[in-house]
């Protein structure tokens, strides 16, 4: 396990990250500005928060493509509650609860139907987004209470955005959870061979629901930060996030077939994508075009993964033959 924690993939990501920083600094004189760099974290902290539980899900051979819709649902319901005069803690709590419930619902359905989570979460992707859209319609919610902006707009000690700090703490918690606890070991076991894990007494279905619920919870958290930062919720909030989140996870070296991946890798990928998109936005590349780069990176990352496996198998077998 320890050897896997700093694999070739993480080293490669590290150098890529260095490359992106150098390239960006060369392309735009504004890139290496401390304030700019700090502000760049706003563009990815929320998605990166969701990437953490998504990594656990994918390691456990599941996937949740409904995350963006859960964020939208949470954000819209917070908007409704804010209009009804809810206080800041109530809003945050509401979002976390709705997110957890939506995630747990995904997990329960996956368990109950015995169908792959892709299919189920494609359904709930439409369902959650649809509910959110039918509530907000073509209007928007902007009536958040004054203190609400603290989550997404406040800086601690003048420099550190609250958002970013929350993300860093979450990363540490997830890293410890995955790499040093019994739960982490069992998640790897489920992802490597769910049947064998079940035969060994691992409550696979319970872990599945818990992981989906955890993903929903983090979506709820991300929704709080996002709504707070934008202080406005419209029907297209968080569209396309599922792809960006999955890209962060897969680029971070999490095997799409389950059973392998590290939080360190995901963190490096988060910064890689975050700084790349920030750099591109500095040179005025529109968001939808950035998606082209992200999509290409996703496909390239998996192609590399497949290629690496192929080479390793190839080398391994030729070693054995001689």
């Amino acid at each position: 396990m320890k050897i896997r924690a700093l694999g070739l993939w993480e080293v490669a990501l590290f150098f890529l990250l260095a490359g992106v920083i150098v390239l960006n600094a060369w392309l735009s004189p504004y890139f290496l500005d401390v304030y700019n760099l700090i502000d760049s974290t706003f563009s990815f902290s929320e998605k990166a928060l969701i990437a953490l539980p998504m990594a656990l899900l994918i390691i456990a051979r599941e996937i949740d493509v409904s995350v963006a819709s859960i964020v939208a649902l949470c954000a819209v319901l917070m908007g409704v509650a804010a209009d009804a005069g809810a206080s800041v803690p109530v809003l945050a709590l509401l979002s976390l609860c709705v997110g957890t419930a939506a995630g747990a619902f995904n997990g329960l359905i996956v368990n109950a139907l015995g169908v792959h989570s892709i299919v189920v979460t494609i359904g709930t992707l439409s369902l959650y987004r649809g509910i959110a859209v039918s509530i907000v319609r073509d209007g928007s919610y902007t009536g958040f209470p004054g203190g609400f902006s603290w989550f997404g707009q406040h800086y601690l000690w003048g420099y550190v955005p609250v958002e970013f700090l929350i993300y860093v703490i979450a990363t540490l918690i997830f890293g410890v959870l995955l790499h040093t606890t019994n739960h982490g070991r069992r998640i790897y076991a489920i992802g490597t061979n769910p049947d064998a894990a079940r035969y060994s007494g691992v409550p696979v279905t319970r872990y599945r629901v818990a992981l989906f619920a955890l993903t929903g919870f983090m979506c709820g958290l991300a929704a709080v930060l996002l709504a707070s930062r934008l202080s406005s919720v419209r029907l297209d909030i968080a569209t396309g996030w599922e792809l960006q989140v999955i890209t962060m996870v897969v680029l971070g070296g999490v095997a799409i077939a389950g059973g392998a991946g590290t939080i360190l890798g995901v963190t490096l990928a988060v910064f890689l994508i975050g700084l790349l998109t920030f750099g591109l936005s500095l040179v005025n590349v529109p968001g939808i075009v950035m998606n082209i780069y992200i999509g290409c990176m996703l496909i390239a990352a998996i192609t590399l993964q497949r290629g690496a496996t192929f080479v390793r198998l190839h080398l391994l077998s030729s070693n054995k033959e001689t």
């Binding site: 359904g123 709930t124 439409s126 369902l127 987004r129 649809g130 509910i131 859209v133 039918s134 319609r137």
Partner: peptide, 11 residues
């Protein structure tokens, strides 16, 4: 606006 939700439920 409920169309999306209906499709999700149908799936």
């Amino acid at each position: 606006f409920l169309q999306t939700a209906v499709i999700g439920a149908v799936i």
